[in-house]
Design a protein around this nucleic acid. Structure first.
Length: 956
RNA sequence: GGAUGCUUAGCUCAGUUUGGUUAGAGCAUCUGCCUUACAAGCAGAGGGUCAUAAGUUCGAGUCUUAUAGCAUCCACCA
């Protein structure tokens, strides 16, 4: 068996994955007598590519999946991609504009959708390629896409049923309108940004010669959005405001327009803010809309879909029906102007007419569309809504009573705070790419909802003479993703997969989509999925919430910052030129390219070297603590790549030493101290590992593996075995016992680590399993049993003995380093004042100490013995001495000892103080008191020794 | 305005639920080693008033309160 000298993951990772996939190992076992474990992958955008956040979450999912698969559970990882309505449509539109100088309208709806499908086919493989490279053991045979036939059927079914149950309705309401994308968006897609703006104070003169109580013939109104003045239908004052009581019910003249609008009383007007008078524009402001409803005001829409001033306003009564209550006329000067151009023009005109009283600076937070990036506009439009408040109640209950658990738990609060004030969910989008709404209108505008036009006609008894037109809108992307856990398993059909795998076990996702996705999934699933007793199914029992992965400086990774790291580049490496090119290609703001290029060159002068999938996955696990954001650190990745190399070389050692031997399962009696020690540590590692995975503490998972493999197995156990293998006095049985343990612990460790590091462990396991006769039928670690702690005996005696050996070796090494004795000089240390057990241990296990400390013998001496000049270091209550001869600088030695003395004295002082304290003695638990006493005793005995040593030095 | 989280070594972070001797890890730094598994390594070393203040307690990194700074979410903004 030949292994390369250095860990080279690129040599085996890809081929191993291909083999796994080809052999169908990612599919569920189908054994329904075993517990089921399932995860639905949050579907990434089909045309996108994976970023670090995906890699992070998928590593955690794959770790859980592989763990449960090895445990024998019937395990399914359901994967798929999302059509990502707006995002995908935008990408294709941009491409179209750039390459062919066309808009989607030039192509028409059908042709455009064809183009999107084509783009999906071209780029859709990107994500799945990346997932394969990450080692994700998803069941590819069940891969789904939110717009494929099955998913679309589920969407249709859900929409129609909700409509029939009056949980979906259509209505004219004020929505967040994105003028760039020309579609409605939901509240969640609005991002508020702080911007510097102004408050413009505008005079609205009274009609009919009215005056305020203090004699003014106008009301002064402050506004941040003067252009909406064209749609004003009232001025509101607070009913309790003495300043304006007398003018309530009177009229003012709308500046620039000349329309009469009433002064109304409404609580919305805050006496202490602004001038106390608020202009009311029900069609363009959410608060004003509410005021309009209360005061029965008409609504005047002045904007087009792309936020230009209309040629003629749309006027509705307070119920949203078309109306002639007020004039539709818009002053000629502003017609067709962009909203912000119109603003400037109007301010100019107001100023010219003396109606602009004054201007103040004002910081406001302005709503922007999260995709389009332009300020959104509240607009009065017809949209479809889900009655989220109704669906939300059981969804809140499920988290409250623990049917769904959030990890970390504090995210449940975030969930509650949003759910408790749930607004109806606007689900219609004026896009082309998505699930088209299954609603048809007759010529009178009456709406019919069914699964198809055919079904509409039969359901509502409409003859062929009735002309039906389908609603042009599509559904919010999140509508279909909300059905993900059950629609992917075949709903609305009753499939065996639904039966076996729903509810899913755990959802792993970022906190940023708790509202977008998690909450809506809970609502939809609980409404549609019921068990045989009619109790709602939750979509998943646990939500594991991850933090964001940020760059080294804690900044969010984004294309425009040019700090994005592609997980695949860390796996396979990338040269600097390609990296720069990648970071600066297709920029929305090309002017940033140069800066990004410079920064990238500085940060990665030689590009990024390959680290392999396992190292990346291990790093991601090590970072996964407590759902906090993570600042990415290349050094960590390097460190864990080195760890992979360490494992690699440990197995090389094992193979080189026992490769030729025929291994037999040893009798317990043949096990050496070293064997018993590492087996006991193995026991603990398995125990802790299992607990950590079950608790979703992947950072602990990583640390347990690291600590066990590097600090116990490699640093100590491997060194012990060297002594055993070369000891001629030991029998073949004894050597076999060590060889067997060496390989068995390695083999077990590979299984233990496999969920995190699938490739490296597979490679090494293949070899070790054969040696132990443990190769399973499928010939892969993937289906080997996960280790159980009972396979390895706990042995506290062995651990204690090894602890002493470690301490002894460390003490000698310490002395050696401090005295500057070269490592290749063999020493003859003395052990003074050791108790019987320590003497036994040192004698019995001298073979280990000999090599570890490079010594030829240990002489036991007593404090009364007359010794040559020595240097010494305390070891527990005893001390290790080394004859000084010519190897020491006396003054330095005294200095070292005095330093030690000071430390010990301080410890004694604080220990004594504690034990003198009556309160401590009477109140602290006995074991703490005993511990303190024992420690004090050790310190005192060490103090004596060090003092004596100093005296001795001084005599020289 | 409401809420949450964070502040521990030069850097990145564990440890706080359940208080207990001298607070840990990786990286970085320093010293010595190419010792036949591994220089992507080995053996050692230095480095922390646990953000600040007060309190509870025999005892506080850990519990309470206040303050400061950072971050995030929600709401509002005439």
């Amino acid at each position: 068996m030949q292994m390369d000298k250095t860990y080279a993951p690129e040599n085996f990772e890809k081929s191993i994955y291909e083999k796994w996939e080809k052999e169908g190992l990612f599919k569920p076992s189908g054994d329904t007598s075993k517990p089921a474990f399932s995860i639905a992958l949050p579907p990434p955008n089909v045309t996108g590519s994976l970023h670090m956040g995906h890699a992070f979450q998928q590593t955690i999912m794959d770790t859980l999946i592989r763990y449960h698969r090895m445990k024998g559970d019937n395990t399914l990882w359901q994967c798929g991609t999302d059509h990502a309505g707006i995002a995908t449509q935008m990408v294709v539109e941009r491409k179209l504009a750039k390459e062919e100088n066309l808009t989607r309208h030039d192509l028409g709806r059908e042709k455009f959708i064809e183009r999107v499908w084509k783009w999906k086919e071209e780029s859709g493989g990107n994500i799945t390629r990346q997932m394969r490279r990450l080692g994700d053991s998803v069941d590819w045979s069940r891969e789904r896409f939110t717009m494929d036939e099955g998913m679309s059927r589920a969407v249709l079914e859900v929409f129609v049923r909700l409509f029939d149950e009056d949980l979906i309705y259509r209505g004219k309401r004020l929505v967040n309108w994105d003028p760039k994308l020309r579609t409605a968006i939901s509240d969640l897609e609005v991002e508020n940004k702080d911007v510097k703006g102004y408050l413009w104070y505008i005079k609205y003169h009274f009609a009919d010669g009215v005056k305020t109580s203090d004699g003014k013939d106008y009301l002064l109104v402050a506004t941040t959005r003067p252009e909406t003045l064209l749609g004003d239908t009232a001025i509101a004052v607070n009913p309790a405001d003495e300043r304006f009581k007398s003018v309530i019910g009177k009229y003012v003249i709308l500046p620039l327009v000349g329309r009469r609008i009433p002064v109304v009383a409404d609580m919305h007007a805050d006496m202490t803010t602004g001038t106390g008078c608020v202009k009311i524009t029900p069609a363009h402001d959410f608060n004003d809309y509410a005021v309009g409803k209360r005061c029965k005001l008409p609504m005047v829409n002045i904007l087009t879909e792309d936020a230009k001033i209309r040629d003629e306003a749309e006027v509705f009564n307070t119920n949203g029906e078309p109306s002639d209550e007020v004039s539709k006329e818009i002053p000629k000067a502003y017609r067709g102007l962009d909203r912000f151009v119109a603003r400037d023009k109007m301010l100019e005109d107001l100023k010219a007419q003396g109606l602009l009283d004054h201007i103040e600076d004002h910081n406001l937070s302005q709503p922007f569309g999260d995709r389009g990036g332009v300020p959104i506009e509240p607009m009065l439009t017809d949209q479809w809504y889900v009655r989220a408040s109704v669906l939300g109640k059981p969804a809140v209950e499920a988290v409250k009573d623990g049917r769904i658990k959030f990890v970390p738990a504090q995210y449940a609060n975030m969930y509650f705070s949003w759910m408790n004030d749930l607004q109806d969910w606007c689900i219609s989008r004026q896009l082309w790419w998505g699930h088209r709404i299954p609603a048809w209108y007759d010529e009178n505008g009456k709406v019919y909802v069914a699964r198809s036009e055919e079904e509409v006609r039969s359901k509502y008894s409409l003859g062929t003479e009735v002309k039906l037109t389908r609603d042009p809108d599509v559904l919010d992307t999140w509508f279909s993703s909300a059905l993900w856990t059950f629609s992917t398993l075949g709903w609305p059909d009753k499939t065996p997969e639904l039966e076996a795998f729903h509810p899913t076990s755990v959802l792993v996702t970022g906190f940023d989509i708790i509202f977008f996705w998690v909450a809506r999934m809970i609502m939809m699933t609980m409404h549609f999925m019921k068990d045989k007793d009619g109790n709602p199914h939750v979509p998943f029992r646990t939500v594991y919430v991850t933090g964001l992965i940020r760059d080294e400086e804690g900044k969010k990774m984004s294309k425009s910052k040019g700090n994005v790291l592609d997980p695949l580049d860390m796996i396979d490496g990338i040269d600097i030129d390609t990296l720069v090119q990648k970071r600066t290609a297709n920029m929305m703001q090309p002017q940033l390219a140069e800066k990004i290029s410079k920064r990238t060159q500085k940060q990665f002068p030689d590009g990024i070297t390959a680290h392999g999938t396992d190292a990346l996955r291990f790093t991601l696990c090590a970072f996964a603590s407590n759902g906090r954001d993570i600042n990415w650190d290349m050094k960590r990745l390097e460190g864990y790549r080195n760890f992979c190399n360490k494992i690699w070389n440990a197995s090389r050692f094992a193979l080189m030493n026992v490769g030729q031997m025929k291994l037999q399962k040893p009798q317990d009696s043949a096990l050496s101290l070293a064997d018993r020690f590492i087996r006991s540590k193995m026991h603990a590692a398995i125990k802790n590992m299992t607990a950590a995975i079950e608790a979703y503490r992947f950072d602990q998972v990583a640390n347990i593996l690291y600590e066990f493999i590097w600090n116990e197995y490699c640093d100590w156990y491997l060194e012990f075995t060297k002594a055993i293998f070369k000891d001629d006095k030991l029998s073949d049985d004894q050597k076999n016992a060590t060889a067997y343990t060496l390989v068995e612990v390695l083999e077990t460790t590979m299984r233990l680590a496999h969920p995190v590091m699938p490739f490296l462990t597979e490679t090494i396991w293949q070899q070790t399993a054969v040696m132990l006769g443990r190769m399973n039928q499928t010939g892969t670690i993937m289906t080997a049993p996960y280790p159980v702690q009972s396979d390895f005996a706990e042995d506290s005696t062995a651990e204690a003995d090894v602890e002493f050996i470690k301490d002894f070796a460390t003490t000698v090494r310490n002395l050696r380093a401090e005295m500057k004795v070269a490592p290749n000089v063999t020493l003859n240390p003395m052990l003074r004042g050791a108790n019987g057990d320590e003497q036994r241990c040192a004698t019995e296990h001298f073979r280990y100490l000999k090599d570890l400390a490079n010594i030829s013998e240990i002489k036991f001496v007593d404090s009364g013995d007359n010794l040559p000049p020595c240097t010494a270091k305390p070891l527990r209550k005893a001390e290790v001495l080394i004859e000084m001869k010519d190897l020491v600088n006396k003054d330095e030695e005294i200095k070292r000892l005095e330093g030690m003395l000071a430390k010990i004295e301080a410890n004694i002082k604080s220990g004594e103080a504690r034990l003198k304290n009556d309160a401590f003695i009477s109140k602290a638990p006995q074991n703490i008191i005993d511990g303190a006493k024992a420690q004090l005793e050790v310190n005192r005995s060490q103090l004596e020794k060090v003092k004596a040593q100093i005296e001795e030095m001084k005599k020289l």
